[in-house]
Design a protein around this nucleic acid. Structure first.
Length: 271
DNA sequence: CCGGACGCCTGTCGGC
DNA sequence: TGCCGACAGGCGTCCG
């Protein structure tokens, strides 16, 4: 579900309500996520102050006094700031109760999300250790893509969605990026030239920045920390448009399954 | 090391 | 109307 723009939007929505606040309690009602929510958190978190928050790939990291809370939204997760008396539904896994009485509520119907507690530097956590660069930072560019893709025989779409190569790109933005760059999703990553790697990297940045400016993409259940949906859906060129006309050449967009993910592209405009 | 497939879950939608 | 399979924004793990 949430890719970089949605996770970043979530962070921006919740952070102002969290910074400087002390945790009053953790109300854990449904610990079953991808990995069980550590029960020790209910004793560990109260009293700790939240003094920072950032995003790494699709992970959210909240800095507390004694460590970091690491959150992943999986496919259907969301984090929202809600008033203290908001009734909890069936998929509301936990509330972080703040001293102001406001709640940070984690909701996740499909339970692919997760929560971890990290004492040391969060980058050393096994889930973060082998992550590639952030796509919007300068370390990520055409030159980097070119270097990393040499010898790789995977389709370029799979390559872009590999978090060891670059973080934050999921199925929606991989499709959109390839369309914008004019690159066929099945093209072998290692056979893409330097110039097209430049185009690809530029397209990644453009798509993510534009999506961010729209507050992300809401297909069904994504909401930002303030409860509002994202509006990038109206700007999608290919994702969800299989069979509909290409916006550039009007031919019907084609669809295929790659690694069990729907892939949409234009046979004429992407090579 | 690399590439591909699987499975974890619930909800929704389209076809019969 | 109801049932059933396919599919949905991710990713760690396993297998060849």
């Amino acid at each position: 579900m949430p890719e970089l723009p949605e996770v970043e939007t979530t962070l921006r929505g919740i952070l102002p309500h969290l910074l400087g606040q002390r945790v009053a309690a953790l109300r854990l009602r449904q610990p079953a996520l991808r990995w069980p929510v550590p029960g020790e958190l209910t004793e560990l978190l109260p009293g700790q102050r939240i003094h920072g928050g950032r995003r790494r790939g699709k992970y959210l990291l909240l800095a507390l006094d004694d460590g970091h809370l690491l959150l992943h939204l999986g496919m259907s997760g969301s984090l929202r700031i809600v008033p203290a008396d908001t009734p909890a539904g069936r998929h509301d896994h936990f509330d972080l109760v703040l001293e102001t009485g406001v709640l940070l509520r984690f909701t996740d119907p499909r339970r692919f999300g997760s929560v971890h507690w990290v004492r040391g530097p969060p980058e050393a956590h096994p889930l973060l250790r082998s992550l590639g660069p952030e796509p919007l930072e300068d370390a990520f560019g055409g030159e980097y893509l070119y270097r990393r893709s040499r010898g790789r025989r995977v389709p370029v779409k799979s390559f872009l969605m590999d978090s060891r190569v670059v973080v934050g790109i999921g199925n929606i933005y991989a499709n959109e990026t390839l369309y914008l760059a004019g690159v066929h999703p099945l093209r072998t990553a290692g056979r893409i030239g330097a110039a097209r790697c430049d185009r690809l990297a530029a397209a990644v940045k453009t798509v993510l920045v534009d999506a961010l400016a729209q507050g992300g993409t809401t297909l069904r259940d994504f909401v930002g920390g303030d409860g509002r949906p994202g509006y990038f859906r109206q700007r999608l060129s290919v994702y969800g448009r299989g069979g509909m006309p290409c916006l550039q050449c009007a031919r019907p967009l084609r669809e295929l399954r790659l690694a069990q993910r729907t892939t949409v592209y234009c046979q004429r405009c992407q090579r």
